[in-house]
Measured scan of single mutants.
Amino acid sequence: MDVFMKGLSKAKEGVVAAAEKTKQGVAEAAGKTKEGVLYVGSKTKEGVVHGVATVAEKTKEQVTNVGGAVVTGVTAVAQKTVEGAGSIAAATGFVKKDQLGKNEEGAPQEGILEDMPVDPDNEAYEMPSEEGYQDYEPEA
């Protein structure tokens, strides 16, 4: 019985440690998101679009440190934060509304985080759909 109880105690310690790591990862992701939003706020009209992409990228980098179902929630929060940063930029006159959601080359930025393969159960990952990809044929 002692062996059984000791095993359960060790398992509990492992769960607590994993929860603490997840909590730490979420806190880091939130900190990076805040950094990115402050970065966007300090940019001029020309830099705002690039700044919004930076927020998304920093958040995406930190999301990889967070495991399990938390990833889905962090990704949703990050996307809403990026959308909010863009709205703030438009409201303050840093950028025109028609410039939001495009990178410096004018290509749409939507789907940055949505296409990231995420499995809350950590069982399997699927690649994003290939609808947006084109076949590449090298020139002879």
Results as ranks from 00 to 15, higher is better:
6 K>Q: 01
107 A>I: 12
114 E>W: 14
104 E>Q: 13
78 A>L: 03
32 K>V: 12
24 Q>D: 03
98 D>F: 04
18 A>N: 15
14 G>A: 11
25 G>R: 03
26 V>C: 11
57 E>I: 13
71 V>P: 04
90 A>W: 11
58 K>M: 11
94 F>H: 04
108 P>D: 00
71 V>K: 11
91 A>R: 09
106 G>K: 13
4 F>K: 02
88 I>P: 01
62 Q>R: 10
29 A>C: 15
121 D>A: 10
45 K>I: 12
107 A>Y: 02
90 A>H: 14
7 G>D: 00
104 E>H: 07
91 A>D: 02
35 E>Q: 08
44 T>A: 10
140 A>T: 07
114 E>L: 06
56 A>T: 08
43 K>D: 00
110 E>L: 11
4 F>L: 15
68 G>S: 15
13 E>M: 12
78 A>E: 01
31 G>F: 15
20 E>P: 02
98 D>L: 10
31 G>V: 12
118 V>C: 03
79 Q>F: 10
56 A>I: 05
36 G>H: 04
6 K>H: 04
76 A>M: 03
132 G>N: 11
68 G>C: 11
80 K>A: 04
69 A>K: 12
40 V>T: 09
15 V>H: 01
124 A>S: 06
23 K>W: 11
25 G>Q: 15
118 V>Q: 03
31 G>M: 11
112 I>A: 03
88 I>R: 08
48 V>N: 01
80 K>N: 08
131 E>C: 14
49 V>N: 02
128 P>L: 05
125 Y>M: 03
15 V>Y: 06
104 E>M: 14
12 K>F: 10
54 T>Y: 04
92 T>N: 14
94 F>P: 04
29 A>E: 01
108 P>L: 05
72 T>A: 02
131 E>H: 13
75 T>A: 05
94 F>Y: 14
35 E>I: 14
113 L>R: 14
139 E>Q: 09
7 G>K: 02
27 A>Y: 13
20 E>H: 15
50 H>G: 11
23 K>G: 06
127 M>P: 02
76 A>G: 07
84 G>C: 11
73 G>A: 07
54 T>M: 10
11 A>L: 04
5 M>C: 00
2 D>M: 05
89 A>V: 13
56 A>K: 15
89 A>P: 04
10 K>F: 06
67 G>Q: 12
46 E>V: 02
44 T>L: 12
131 E>R: 14
140 A>F: 11
135 D>Q: 07
99 Q>G: 13
54 T>P: 03
108 P>E: 07
34 K>N: 10
75 T>G: 08
27 A>Q: 09
112 I>R: 13
138 P>T: 04
91 A>E: 03
1 M>Y: 00
136 Y>Q: 08
81 T>W: 13
91 A>N: 15
80 K>R: 12
77 V>C: 11
71 V>Q: 02
41 G>M: 06
104 E>D: 07
84 G>K: 12
85 A>S: 03
121 D>C: 09
62 Q>N: 09
76 A>V: 10
64 T>K: 07
81 T>H: 07
60 K>T: 08
1 M>K: 00
1 M>R: 01
108 P>S: 04
19 A>R: 10
78 A>F: 12
116 M>G: 05
26 V>L: 07
64 T>I: 08
130 E>H: 09
91 A>W: 09
35 E>L: 14
55 V>A: 06
8 L>Y: 00
122 N>Q: 05
108 P>R: 09
40 V>E: 00
113 L>T: 08
78 A>C: 14
105 E>D: 13
74 V>Q: 00
109 Q>N: 03
95 V>G: 06
99 Q>D: 01
75 T>I: 15
66 V>N: 02
8 L>F: 13
10 K>M: 15
90 A>K: 15
96 K>L: 08
138 P>M: 06
118 V>I: 09
46 E>F: 14
140 A>G: 05
119 D>W: 13
36 G>D: 09
33 T>I: 02
49 V>D: 01
104 E>Y: 11
119 D>V: 04
49 V>T: 09
81 T>S: 04
132 G>Q: 02
6 K>Y: 02
38 L>N: 06
53 A>P: 00
4 F>A: 02
75 T>R: 05
129 S>R: 07
93 G>H: 06
63 V>C: 11
8 L>R: 01
82 V>H: 12
130 E>S: 14
39 Y>S: 13
7 G>V: 12
94 F>T: 08
70 V>P: 00
26 V>I: 12
42 S>A: 05
52 V>H: 14
89 A>F: 09
66 V>R: 04
51 G>E: 03
7 G>R: 13
3 V>A: 03
71 V>F: 11
46 E>S: 06
133 Y>D: 12
128 P>K: 08
7 G>P: 04
123 E>K: 01
47 G>M: 06
108 P>W: 15
65 N>H: 09
123 E>D: 07
75 T>L: 06
60 K>I: 06
65 N>A: 02
27 A>H: 05
64 T>R: 15
29 A>L: 06
42 S>N: 03
34 K>V: 03
87 S>P: 01
93 G>W: 11
79 Q>R: 11
62 Q>P: 00
39 Y>T: 07
81 T>K: 01
129 S>E: 04
106 G>F: 09
14 G>E: 11
110 E>N: 15
84 G>D: 10
47 G>K: 08
82 V>P: 01
46 E>H: 11
113 L>H: 07
63 V>F: 15
8 L>T: 00
84 G>N: 12
68 G>R: 15
43 K>H: 06
30 A>F: 09
95 V>D: 02
58 K>L: 14
48 V>T: 08
110 E>F: 03
14 G>L: 06
79 Q>P: 00
33 T>S: 05
130 E>D: 15
30 A>M: 03
69 A>G: 08
99 Q>S: 01
123 E>W: 12
34 K>Q: 04
134 Q>L: 01
58 K>S: 08
135 D>F: 08
46 E>R: 13
93 G>Q: 06
34 K>H: 04
19 A>P: 04
119 D>K: 02
88 I>A: 04
134 Q>F: 05
47 G>D: 11
13 E>C: 10
26 V>H: 00
111 G>V: 03
16 V>W: 09
67 G>P: 02
118 V>E: 12
7 G>N: 13
131 E>V: 10
83 E>F: 02
68 G>E: 06
17 A>Y: 09
93 G>F: 10
78 A>I: 02
14 G>Y: 10
114 E>I: 15
125 Y>E: 08
39 Y>Q: 10
25 G>T: 10
71 V>H: 12
96 K>G: 09
57 E>T: 08
104 E>V: 15
129 S>K: 06
15 V>D: 01
101 G>Q: 14
7 G>H: 04
107 A>K: 03
75 T>F: 05
97 K>I: 01
7 G>A: 05
140 A>H: 06
121 D>R: 09
5 M>G: 06
15 V>C: 10
44 T>N: 02
52 V>P: 01
99 Q>W: 07
119 D>S: 03
105 E>A: 05
121 D>T: 11
21 K>D: 04
74 V>D: 00
134 Q>V: 07
103 N>A: 05
86 G>V: 13
115 D>R: 12
20 E>R: 14
105 E>I: 10
77 V>Y: 09
122 N>K: 04
20 E>M: 10
15 V>I: 11
128 P>E: 08
127 M>D: 05
50 H>P: 10
97 K>W: 15
20 E>S: 01
33 T>F: 00
42 S>R: 05
47 G>W: 09
